[in-house]
Each structure stands twice: as C-alpha cells, then as structure tokens.
C-alpha cells in the first residue's frame, strides 16, 4: 500500500518487467464511436502501410514480373530458387555472421559498462551521457568516420598498424569489410544496451543482494550467482532487441561497402534493397519479395523465441 494510488499511475509500467495481470476496467461506453475514432488513425495507417504491403509481398513472392508489371504470372517457388541462385544464400550467411557478432559485442560490452557505471562512485553518472552520443547522431555521418578511419596510409587504423609494422587493412578485404560493419554497428548501438542494463540493474531487489553480502559472498559470486540470474528476463529481452536491430543493419553497409567486396557484406536486407532499388534493371522485384518474406519469417522466429525465453526466464527466477 506504500505510495498509494497517486504513485501508481505516476509510474509508467514497463515492458521489461514481468507482466502483471491487467485489472478489469469499469467503464462501459454506451457509444463506442469515441473509441473507434481514437483507434482509427493507427488502425488505418497500419492496415495501409504494413498489413496490405505484407500481403502484397507474400503474394507477389510467388509471382514473376517487373515492379510495375500488371500481368504477373504465377511462378510457385521460382523466386525463392532464384534468390539462392543470385547470392541470397550467401546473404543469409552474412546476416547470420553480422548479427551474431553484433549482438555478442553489444551484449558483452553493454553489460560490462553498465555494471561499472552502476557502481556508487562519484562522476560515473556524468559519463553515462557519453555512451548515448553514437545512438543519437546521424549514422550516415558517423559511418563516414569509419570510412575515413579505414583509409589506406592516412586513416587512423592504418597509421597505427604502420607504426607497429603490421600490414595495412582495407575495406576491399572481405574479412576487414565484415569487421568494419560489425564494429560500426556495435559502436553505434551498444549505448542502448548500457542504458537498458542500467535500468534493469536498478530493479534488482536490494534485500536479496544485501543478504548475500551479509552471508559473506564476494562481488564476483554475487554477480555470477545472484545478479546475472536475476537479470535473465531482461537479458533475454535486450538480446532480442539487439538481434532485431542487427537484422535491420543498413546504413553503414550503404556508406562503407555497398554490400561488397563481392557480396561479402550483402546482408539479407541489403539483398532486398539491391534487387529492388540498387541494381537498376539488373535486379528482380520477385527476388526482393522472396527474400523479404524470408527476412519476415526470421524476425517472427526471433520474436517468438523472445516470448518463450523471457517467459521461461521469468518463471525460473520466481
């Protein structure tokens, strides 16, 4: 009862916290018109710009034709076969490598920095602001910085490598190109993971952690056996947010590599973009549609995995 009803509505309820049962609402509106009028804008826009296009993309992935062609011909799974014949399989592999690397770096760096910033030491609160800078400034502009950093001879990376007598790196090397887009993605996004973990750390029940201190545990034991397990639901959610973000990486690929060299950084999304918009007449909208459907299925699977994992993790904690 502490806090009373006033406090209860003053706090936004979180999506990261365990779900609470919604209490039944007393209002029965006799005229439903207000409710429908309030819901209509979001509903209309959703149907027009998400649901209808999704139906179009699924349907058309089964047809052959050009982007403004009116006589589409049913083609079965031909477009899907064409996707794999035009480097789509490799794009899915690139997507997997990119996403795994991106999520791993973001999660590890994110929780490490969050744990440090969570310590009750003077000055750490002010540093927090630094980590949000890459998130809020235009990614195209910061991707240009990566472009400059990787310049032969004069870029910072190559200056350092030359100074220690190591060979130069360039974005035309497939491995370096993949590392470049992963490092940019992680640099740009990991501040979000820091912020989310900082918020999650604040929700840990203080009495449990303090009881462990009284019981003589050291800091590592408290982290390993108490704090990290308690954070598991949030970790699952943050991992899914990061994964969905990773699947949609686009800006740095556009700026740094344009999918090259030789398709080494062409993710599934970049494949869709290239087939539909990037290659001019060389691309195929049917291929783009088929790959978009594959991308959609992957996103759905990740989201379903979230529901399952978060649910299991919250039960395990309770």
């Amino acid at each position: 009862m502490k806090g009373g009803p006033v406090k209860r509505w003053a706090r936004p309820r979180s999506s990261i916290a365990p779900p609470k049962p919604t209490r039944p609402r007393g209002i029965r509106l006799r005229t439903w018109s207000t409710a429908y009028a309030f819901v209509l804008p979001v509903l209309g826009l959703t149907v027009l710009f998400s649901v209808v296009p999704l139906v179009m993309v699924i349907r058309r992935s089964l047809y052959k034709g050009n982007i403004f062609d009116t006589n589409l011909k049913f083609a079965g799974l031909d477009n899907y076969r064409a996707v794999f014949a035009t480097g789509g399989g490799h794009s899915l592999l690139v997507t997997l490598i990119y996403t795994v690397g991106f999520v791993a770096v973001c999660m590890i760096a994110g929780i490490a920095v969050a744990l440090l910033l969570d310590l009750p030491l003077p000055g750490l609160g002010a540093v927090r602001a630094l980590f949000i800078i890459p998130l809020v400034v235009p990614a195209v502009a910061t991707a240009f910085i990566w472009f400059a950093l990787f310049q032969p001879q004069t870029g910072l990376f190559n200056r350092v490598l030359t100074a220690v007598d190591l060979p130069q790196v360039t974005l035309s090397d497939p491995t370096i190109a993949v590392l470049a887009i992963i490092s940019f993605g992680a640099w740009q996004f990991f501040g979000e993971v820091v912020i989310l973990y900082l918020a999650a750390l604040k929700t840990l029940p203080r009495d449990v952690v303090e009881a462990a201190v009284v019981d003589g545990s050291n800091a590592w034991q408290r982290l390993r056996y108490i704090r990290l397990p308690l954070l598991r639901p949030q970790t699952a959610l943050i991992a899914v947010i990061s994964t969905l973000t990773g699947l949609q990486a686009f800006t740095q690929i556009f700026v740094l590599t344009n999918g090259g060299p030789n398709g080494a950084t062409q993710t599934a999304l970049y494949y869709v973009y290239n087939q539909a918009f990037g290659l001019g007449a060389g691309g195929s909208v049917g291929n783009a549609d088929a790959m978009a459907v594959i991308l959609f299925v992957i996103s759905i699977l990740v989201t379903v995995a979230q529901v399952v994992v978060v649910g299991r993790a919250s039960r395990a904690v309770v």
Partner: peptide, 26 residues
C-alpha cells in the same frame, strides 16, 4: 478491442524493410 489491439501491435511490428518494396509501389 482485444483483436484490434493485437492486430495493430503485430501489424506495426512488421519490420519496415520487409514491406519496403510494396510500400514504395503503393
């Protein structure tokens, strides 16, 4: 109410890149 809410939610959670081609056509 329920079905519209979950409809809106799942509709809006369709990632934009998935529907990029038909949206441009629309």
């Amino acid at each position: 109410r329920r079905i519209l809410f979950y409809g809106v939610l799942s509709g809006l959670m369709i990632p934009f890149p998935v529907v990029i081609v038909p949206v441009v056509e629309l």
